[in-house]
Design a protein around this nucleic acid. Structure first.
Lengths: 165, 165
DNA sequence: CATGGATTGTTTTCGAGTGGACAAAATTGC
DNA sequence: GCAATTTTGTCCACTCGAAAACAATCCATG
């Protein structure tokens, strides 16, 4: 904007400075064809939308996904849950400890394998998930609003295939 | 071990514990239709592939994307680069500082705006990017190997549209 | 100019997530 | 039965990245 017309006070040594110095547009080069890069951008946007919707509830994407999955799989073992959600076991231990102290989940040691921990939602946990689920579903419908319904469907199918699900 | 966790001895009343307790399969429920969840899974996989390919080179996805983009946009200002790559300015300051100390990039303060910093690759930076680029391009072709060429093309188009690029 | 506000990058502080060592329990092989 | 190995969760140290306060500089308006 302001840059295009302004003379650059470059010393001779600065002559090679490119156009991008002042313009707001950046060439992505090989990055424009990078799957990881595009996935990262998309995920950042998705998380920002999630936080915008759930900031007031103190919920994070990871934590909410843990609660949802425990509800869908009562008694699931902590390590299996971690594998399914691609959360490291050491991190899952922290998350589960926090939810346990918050009274949202119950940790039960099965008698036939006393190393393991089985997770279930407490009554409070069920209430929280039930209360937030409508907003979550609404948020999911609104995400990817830049795409048509068909495009969204195609994107999901491709991501599922990519993730082996 | 779990001194804090009182082992709850199972009684017949616990019989409602779900199938997931021991099975390795987990039902995802509403998560199966969550864009953010699928994006997260895909990105984790993509990053793991990147690290598997570049671990020996001590390169990280974010850092490499910064170097690539500086090469494509010599003299780009640090804040504009941060915006383009969706890296926070405070984080970009760290990254740029590290690369500067490593002798890979040069930070130049333009005389007409002495707040700004313009970034260019040093000779060593150019050599590093040039040396790693073939492996990067190879890695990009190999990623998303679970998809056909057409599917990959479609996925890219959808992600670009989703990201507004 | 001069002063108040906006922009740009840095620093500090904090939480999320990882990796590795560890302890307890289970399983396997002898 | 018993030792060695494996599995499961936890703890500790660390890195990556974000939020916010900060300093320096530029700009706009009088």
């Amino acid at each position: 904007m302001r840059a295009a017309t302004r003379p650059v006070v470059a010393t001779p040594a600065d002559a090679e400075t490119g156009d991008a110095a002042r313009s707001g547009s950046v060439a992505f080069g090989p990055l424009a064809d990078s799957l990881g890069f595009h996935l990262r951008l998309a995920q950042i946007a998705a998380f920002e939308e999630f936080f915008a919707a759930f900031a007031e509830d103190g919920l994070q994407p990871g934590g909410f996904s843990v609660l949802i999955t425990i509800r869908e799989n009562p008694g699931v073992r902590q390590g299996i849950l971690a594998n399914a959600l691609r959360i490291k076991r050491s991190h899952m231990a922290k998350i589960v400890q926090g939810f346990g102290e918050a009274g949202l989940i119950e940790r039960r040691v099965p008698p036939d394998d006393r190393r393991a921990v089985e997770l279930t939602l407490t009554e409070a946990g069920h209430r929280l998930v039930a209360a937030k689920m409508p907003k979550f579903l609404q948020h999911e419908r609104a995400s990817a609003a830049a795409l048509t319904k068909d495009e969204r469907h195609t994107l999901f199918a491709l991501l599922r295939k990519l993730n082996g699900l």
